[in-house]
């Protein structure tokens, strides 16, 4: 019962981060600000949702897989942000 309550709280926290990230994606003025918003949703939001799901996991293996999903997502998100940011930066410095 108490676990379910914690799951709901963490899930809602994750949803708030995703909502904020999405609003940031839509409303922020340039690529770098949008990247910032997006990574918050990816990293923190998913982290909270994974925490919520961890509390509901049936076995240790399922829990480990969930944690692995989050770690891979962190890795991918950081690297993709770097690639997009670098591309944009180079575009700016390039004399057109």
């Amino acid at each position: 019962m108490i676990l379910n309550l914690f799951s709901i709280v963490f899930g809602l926290l994750g949803a708030v981060f995703f909502l904020a990230g999405t609003i940031g994606m839509l409303r922020f003025p340039d690529v770098f600000c949008r990247l910032h918003a997006q990574t918050k949703a990816d990293n923190q939001g998913l982290g909270f949702i994974i925490t919520a799901l961890l509390l509901q996991a049936d076995s240790v293996w399922v829990a480990l897989k969930l944690i692995l999903i989050w770690l891979v997502m962190l890795l991918a998100s950081a690297n993709i942000s770097y690639l997009i940011g670098r591309y944009k930066l180079r575009q700016h410095s390039e004399p057109e």
Partner: peptide, 20 residues
């Protein structure tokens, strides 16, 4: 589409992801 010169971050990425 992706720049070719080796990049420390991309190098680290594939080294981590390949076995997985």
């Amino acid at each position: 589409a992706i720049p070719k010169p080796p990049d420390p971050l991309m190098d680290g990425l594939w080294r981590l992801l390949l076995p997985l």
